[in-house]
């Protein structure tokens, strides 16, 4: 390996492959993070212990305070490598506590690094209730005027209840590698058959749930490279002029219209390629090959 290649590898730190702790260190201002309930002050989930499973001290989520571009933020980072980032009782309660703290403290934002398949089945009821509590807490936080920015680019994406939570946030920053949906392709394949959704067809999975598709259809606000620094820049850029809207019927009416029209317009389509064509993309097959900047430019040029 020659030196220039090695330098390039050093410069780019894959967000997808990084651990939650590495993401926290790389996305937020260096050295600014202070963890709440750090591992040395925590115990692994007893619900996993009774099932004979070694837990993690942080139960798969890190919460704390930091600064981002000099502004105070509260931070949530799920660890996708631990039980698929899935939400159990302690994991969920840490997130709810962080969001309730945000209502009191009113930081500039909550940065929510989602990386989760949804409910942790080993604690299914506790996980489902916790996600419901997170949903209410995200909306309480936003209603208090604090934007909640979701970053979606981890190996587990944001699925199940965490897919819903992500869309409840003020905005989503996503990488091409990120995935955002409700049911995982494996679940749909198991229930409805491989003809309905071939979960091993990675290209198809990304055309249906991946960052580029979600960006083109307006379900994520920012598309960034798979790089912790790009997520950082994307979040800073989003927050720069952000004014968190007061919850209002008019806002939700507008979203209702957008979603209803989209539903009618794309009825019966089953592949991102078809949606992109319908959006006016001249060569939809080129989309998976395009780099981030070209795709952003292409989206700007699409008919409204």
């Amino acid at each position: 390996m020659n030196a220039p290649v090695a330098n390039k590898l050093v410069l780019r730190r894959s967000y997808f492959e990084a651990s939650a702790r590495a993401r926290v260190a790389a996305v937020l201002d260096a050295g600014s993070f202070r963890e709440f309930l750090p591992p040395e002050a925590s115990e692994p989930s007893p619900h996993l212990a009774v099932l004979d499973i070694p837990g993690a001290f942080d139960d798969g989520v890190i919460v704390g305070s930091a600064t981002l571009g000099g502004r105070p933020v509260l931070v949530i980072a799920q660890e996708g490598q631990f039980m698929g980032g899935a939400v159990g009782e302690i994991h969920g309660a840490k997130i709810v506590g962080l969001l309730r703290r945000a209502v009191q403290e009113k930081p500039a934002a909550v940065i929510f690094m989602a990386d989760s398949g949804g409910v942790r089945l080993h604690e299914a009821n506790a996980g489902l209730i916790a996600i419901s509590e997170v949903m209410r807490a995200v909306l309480d936080t936003r209603a208090a005027g604090v934007p909640v920015i979701a970053l979606v680019g981890g190996s587990c994406g944001a699925f199940g209840g965490m897919g819903i939570v992500s869309r409840l946030c003020s905005a989503i920053v996503m990488s091409e590698e990120g995935r955002l949906a409700l049911s995982g392709p494996e679940v749909i394949e198991t229930v409805a058959g491989v003809e309905e959704f071939d979960s091993k067809d990675r290209a198809l999975v990304w055309r249906v749930t991946g960052g580029k598709h979600r960006y083109l259809t307006g379900d994520c606000a920012e598309l960034v490279e798979d790089d912790a620094a790009s997520f950082r820049d994307g979040a800073i850029a989003l927050l720069a002029g952000w004014q968190e809207p007061v919850p209002a019927s008019s806002t939700l009416r507008a979203e209702q219209t957008r979603l209803t029209e989209r539903r009618q317009r794309f009825a019966g389509l089953r592949d991102g390629l078809e949606v992109w064509q319908a959006l006016g993309v001249a060569e939809p097959r080129q989309i998976p090959l395009m780099d981030r900047d070209s795709l952003v430019a292409l989206k700007k040029g699409l008919p409204a």
Partner: peptide
């Protein structure tokens, strides 16, 4: 440091906490 944590409890991996 007062404590140090390394690694993640993921498949083929482990976390180590030193106090």
């Amino acid at each position: 440091a007062g404590a140090a944590l390394c690694g993640v409890v993921g498949s083929g991996n482990l976390e180590i906490l030193i106090r």
